[in-house]
Simulated assay, not measured.
Amino acid sequence: MGKMKKLSAELDELKKCGEILIGISDTLKELFSTAEEKKPIKEPNKKEALVEEIPKLERKALLLTDVRAVLADKSRNGYTSDVKALLLKYGADKLSAINPKDYEALLAEAEVIGND
Protein backbone atom coordinates (compact mmCIF):
# COMPACT_ATOMS: atom_id res chain seq x y z
CA MET A 1 0.00 0.00 0.00
CA GLY A 2 1.39 3.37 -0.98
CA LYS A 3 2.08 6.00 1.63
CA MET A 4 -0.66 8.32 0.33
CA LYS A 5 -3.24 5.54 0.24
CA LYS A 6 -2.32 4.49 3.77
CA LEU A 7 -2.49 8.11 4.97
CA SER A 8 -5.88 8.53 3.31
CA ALA A 9 -7.21 5.39 5.03
CA GLU A 10 -5.91 6.60 8.39
CA LEU A 11 -7.50 10.01 7.89
CA ASP A 12 -10.81 8.37 7.05
CA GLU A 13 -10.58 6.31 10.24
CA LEU A 14 -9.72 9.43 12.26
CA LYS A 15 -12.75 11.23 10.81
CA LYS A 16 -14.97 8.27 11.70
CA CYS A 17 -13.63 8.29 15.27
CA GLY A 18 -14.33 12.01 15.51
CA GLU A 19 -17.91 11.51 14.38
CA ILE A 20 -18.34 8.78 16.97
CA LEU A 21 -16.98 11.04 19.72
CA ILE A 22 -19.36 13.82 18.69
CA GLY A 23 -22.26 11.37 18.86
CA ILE A 24 -21.20 10.20 22.30
CA SER A 25 -20.84 13.75 23.59
CA ASP A 26 -24.29 14.68 22.24
CA THR A 27 -25.79 11.66 23.97
CA LEU A 28 -24.07 12.47 27.26
CA LYS A 29 -25.18 16.09 27.01
CA GLU A 30 -28.79 14.94 26.60
CA LEU A 31 -28.52 12.51 29.50
CA PHE A 32 -27.11 15.06 31.89
CA SER A 33 -29.07 18.12 30.80
CA THR A 34 -30.94 19.89 33.57
CA ALA A 35 -34.08 20.45 31.52
CA GLU A 36 -37.07 18.81 33.19
CA GLU A 37 -39.12 18.61 30.02
CA LYS A 38 -39.67 15.23 28.43
CA LYS A 39 -37.70 14.79 25.27
CA PRO A 40 -39.35 13.10 22.32
CA ILE A 41 -37.99 9.73 21.34
CA LYS A 42 -35.82 10.22 18.32
CA GLU A 43 -34.68 7.89 15.65
CA PRO A 44 -31.00 6.92 15.74
CA ASN A 45 -28.93 9.35 13.74
CA LYS A 46 -25.82 8.67 11.71
CA LYS A 47 -23.51 9.28 14.68
CA GLU A 48 -25.33 6.81 16.92
CA ALA A 49 -25.33 4.27 14.13
CA LEU A 50 -21.55 4.59 13.88
CA VAL A 51 -21.19 3.83 17.59
CA GLU A 52 -23.16 0.63 17.05
CA GLU A 53 -20.81 -0.36 14.24
CA ILE A 54 -17.74 -0.52 16.46
CA PRO A 55 -17.04 -4.17 17.09
CA LYS A 56 -16.66 -5.15 20.72
CA LEU A 57 -13.09 -6.17 20.05
CA GLU A 58 -12.17 -2.63 19.03
CA ARG A 59 -13.72 -1.08 22.14
CA LYS A 60 -11.41 -0.30 25.00
CA ALA A 61 -11.44 -3.01 27.63
CA LEU A 62 -12.91 -1.76 30.89
CA LEU A 63 -10.57 -1.52 33.81
CA LEU A 64 -11.33 -1.92 37.48
CA THR A 65 -10.73 1.82 37.95
CA ASP A 66 -13.34 2.66 35.29
CA VAL A 67 -16.02 0.60 37.00
CA ARG A 68 -14.94 1.77 40.46
CA ALA A 69 -15.37 5.42 39.43
CA VAL A 70 -18.97 4.87 38.32
CA LEU A 71 -19.89 2.81 41.38
CA ALA A 72 -18.27 5.31 43.74
CA ASP A 73 -20.24 8.13 42.12
CA LYS A 74 -23.50 6.19 42.54
CA SER A 75 -22.63 5.48 46.15
CA ARG A 76 -21.85 9.16 46.84
CA ASN A 77 -25.22 10.06 45.36
CA GLY A 78 -27.05 7.92 47.92
CA TYR A 79 -27.31 4.60 46.12
CA THR A 80 -24.87 2.63 48.28
CA SER A 81 -27.37 -0.14 48.99
CA ASP A 82 -28.13 -0.49 45.27
CA VAL A 83 -24.40 -0.72 44.50
CA LYS A 84 -23.91 -3.38 47.17
CA ALA A 85 -26.89 -5.35 45.84
CA LEU A 86 -25.43 -5.18 42.35
CA LEU A 87 -22.08 -6.50 43.55
CA LEU A 88 -23.82 -9.35 45.35
CA LYS A 89 -25.73 -10.14 42.17
CA TYR A 90 -22.35 -10.76 40.53
CA GLY A 91 -21.27 -12.99 43.41
CA ALA A 92 -18.94 -10.66 45.27
CA ASP A 93 -19.01 -8.45 48.33
CA LYS A 94 -16.45 -6.05 46.90
CA LEU A 95 -15.61 -4.84 43.41
CA SER A 96 -12.12 -6.32 43.33
CA ALA A 97 -13.69 -9.80 43.59
CA ILE A 98 -15.74 -9.33 40.40
CA ASN A 99 -14.55 -11.18 37.29
CA PRO A 100 -13.19 -8.63 34.77
CA LYS A 101 -15.28 -10.32 32.08
CA ASP A 102 -18.37 -9.06 33.93
CA TYR A 103 -17.27 -5.40 34.08
CA GLU A 104 -19.18 -4.38 30.96
CA ALA A 105 -22.48 -5.94 32.13
CA LEU A 106 -21.97 -4.64 35.67
CA LEU A 107 -21.30 -1.14 34.39
CA ALA A 108 -24.38 -1.23 32.15
CA GLU A 109 -26.56 -2.14 35.14
CA ALA A 110 -24.87 0.41 37.39
CA GLU A 111 -25.47 3.26 34.95
CA VAL A 112 -29.25 2.88 35.27
CA ILE A 113 -29.18 3.14 39.07
CA GLY A 114 -30.86 6.40 40.04
CA ASN A 115 -32.20 7.15 36.57
CA ASP A 116 -35.80 6.36 37.49
Score class of each variant (00 low, 15 high):
54 I>G: 07
51 V>W: 04
68 R>M: 07
69 A>G: 00
71 L>N: 01
63 L>D: 13
77 N>C: 15
62 L>F: 07
60 K>N: 10
61 A>C: 07
56 K>C: 02
57 L>G: 11
56 K>D: 00
63 L>K: 15
48 E>K: 15
74 K>L: 14
50 L>G: 10
49 A>C: 15
67 V>S: 09
83 V>A: 03
81 S>T: 12
68 R>Q: 15
48 E>W: 08
54 I>V: 15
80 T>Q: 04
48 E>T: 13
66 D>F: 05
64 L>F: 12
80 T>I: 05
78 G>S: 04
60 K>W: 06
49 A>M: 15
50 L>I: 08
80 T>C: 09
58 E>P: 02
69 A>P: 02
54 I>L: 04
83 V>C: 12
67 V>K: 05
82 D>M: 10
49 A>L: 15
85 A>Q: 11
79 Y>V: 03
71 L>H: 01
73 D>W: 11
81 S>W: 06
86 L>E: 01
55 P>C: 00
50 L>S: 09
70 V>K: 00
61 A>F: 14
88 L>Y: 06
57 L>I: 09
62 L>A: 09
72 A>F: 11
83 V>K: 06
63 L>I: 08
69 A>M: 02
59 R>H: 04
76 R>D: 12
82 D>F: 14
88 L>D: 07
87 L>H: 00
76 R>H: 11
88 L>W: 03
66 D>Q: 08
69 A>I: 00
66 D>C: 09
64 L>A: 05
52 E>S: 06
73 D>K: 10
64 L>V: 03
66 D>H: 15
62 L>M: 07
79 Y>Q: 08
72 A>T: 15
57 L>R: 07
71 L>V: 05
51 V>H: 08
56 K>V: 00
86 L>W: 10
81 S>E: 15
65 T>P: 01
86 L>A: 06
77 N>G: 04
69 A>Q: 05
67 V>R: 00
87 L>R: 04
73 D>V: 11
61 A>D: 13
75 S>Q: 12
57 L>Y: 08
77 N>E: 11
51 V>C: 10
77 N>W: 07
59 R>C: 13
72 A>Q: 13
71 L>F: 04
49 A>K: 12
54 I>T: 00
87 L>V: 02
82 D>L: 13
61 A>W: 08
60 K>S: 13
76 R>W: 06
82 D>K: 11
60 K>D: 06
57 L>M: 05
70 V>W: 04
58 E>C: 01
73 D>S: 14
86 L>H: 11
77 N>Y: 08
78 G>D: 02
51 V>I: 12
79 Y>L: 02
50 L>P: 09
70 V>Q: 04
50 L>F: 07
51 V>R: 02
55 P>D: 09
72 A>V: 14
75 S>Y: 01
70 V>C: 06
60 K>T: 12
56 K>H: 00
82 D>G: 08
61 A>H: 13
53 E>T: 05
88 L>S: 14
57 L>F: 09
50 L>C: 08
71 L>Q: 01
85 A>S: 15
83 V>L: 07
88 L>R: 14
